[in-house]
């Protein structure tokens, strides 16, 4: 037995010394195989237990097991230290110049007219207005006559109209999305609450504030008990959502053949806050849209009961809204589709 003691001690000394000398993980793994692996020296010791006299077995077994766990712990500790130091080295060598450029992503984005139309329809959507659409090439009957704009009436001159070659039925490029008022009311009974976005056309020379093709969002609400006060509330809410809660609003009388009473809705000029500037022609006010109570003749022509039903309608130009909201100065830019300009708008949006 006395002979066995130094063997374990020697083995321990040698093993620990070799382990201390290991400077990489591969060496520690070889060390493991040499001492603790299936064919390792310590494992060999445990196999010797069976060959010892029974009275020595217990003590020898305890000693070998102690050695085994000591070496195991030492290995784990050594490996942890080497791993930590390897990681440290890696981190030291892998430092990046974080100012190098990011890899470019080709990000697509929406056209500003798409975004403004959605914004407008969302605001009205929250007030219960549903989005509907109608044809851009339209019967004059819907674009004019049924909106109380008869032929040979000076009111028609307000809209310089593109006419389409057609047979007996007069067909035009719609000058506003208002014909959808008529189509909606012909298709269903009140209550009606819709907004109608879409492209419109006017035979008009293009300049910084006029386009031959442009967008309009028309709104219509018809029900029992709808009043001018409701129109005022709805438009005021819209203006505040669109231009901020501090915007002042102005409601004044104006004429549109399909409404009575007629309304011109303005906000105080966002550029000068109502003090008067070039944008608002010194008036302090910017006209946002035309509106009014649906004319009883329009309601009659679609077969609504004018003794019960009242309604309001409004129409606005989304491009003009953007000119005001973002301080742009040329409405033609929306349809030039210069990618550089579109990108600038995309970044300026929020």
């Amino acid at each position: 037995m006395a002979k066995a003691e130094p063997t374990i001690i020697e083995l321990r000394e040698a093993a620990l010394s070799r382990l201390r000398a290991a400077t990489d993980l591969e060496t520690t793994r070889a060390w493991y195989r040499e001492y603790l692996g299936d064919h390792g020296a310590v494992t060999a010791l445990t196999r010797r237990v069976a060959s010892l006299p029974p009275e020595q077995r217990r003590a020898f077994g305890i000693a070998v097991n102690a050695l085994k766990s000591e070496l195991g712990a030492a290995l784990a500790e050594r490996q942890a230290r080497l791993e930590a130091s390897a990681l440290e080295t890696r981190i030291e060598t892998e430092a990046l110049d974080v100012t190098l450029p990011g890899r470019p992503v080709q990000r697509g984005f929406l056209h500003p007219t798409t975004r403004i139309i959605r914004e407008i329809c969302d605001i009205f959507g929250k007030m219960g207005f549903q989005t509907v659409e109608g044809p851009e090439v339209e019967y004059a009957k819907y674009n004019f006559d049924m909106l109380n704009i008869p032929a040979d009436h000076p009111a028609r001159d307000v809209w310089d109209t593109f006419h389409v070659e057609s047979g007996e039925a007069e067909i035009v490029l719609r000058t506003h999305t208002s014909p959808m008022q008529v189509r909606t009311m012909l298709a269903q009974q009140p209550p009606v609450r819709v907004v109608v976005p879409g492209r419109c056309y006017r035979y008009e020379a293009t300049d910084a504030t006029h386009l031959a093709m442009f967008l309009q969002v028309e709104g219509l609400a018809v029900d029992e008990g709808i009043t001018l006060a409701d129109l005022k509330g709805t438009l005021t809410e819209f203006a505040r959502q669109m231009f901020g809660p501090d915007r002042k609003t102005r409601f004044r009388c104006d004429f549109f053949p399909f409404v009575e009473p007629g309304v011109d809705f303005a906000i105080d000029c966002p550029q000068c806050n109502g003090k008067g500037c070039r944008l608002c022609k010194q008036s302090g006010w910017i006209e946002l849209l035309g509106a009014g109570m649906v004319h009883p003749r329009v309601l009659e022509m679609v077969g609504y009961d004018t003794s019960k039903q009242t309604g309001f309608a409004f129409g606005m130009g989304p491009e003009r809204l953007m000119l005001l909201k973002y301080g742009l100065d040329d409405i033609r830019d929306f349809y030039k589709n210069d990618i550089r300009w579109l990108r600038q708008m995309d970044r300026a949006w929020l």
Partner: peptide
Amino acid sequence: VEEVARIIGYETVPATMIAGTTPHVIRS
């Protein structure tokens, strides 16, 4: 109605929200 309102002044009309029944759903 317009004559009366425009002379007394549209500014005297209050701002309210639509009351009444929910409109028909039209999904485009």
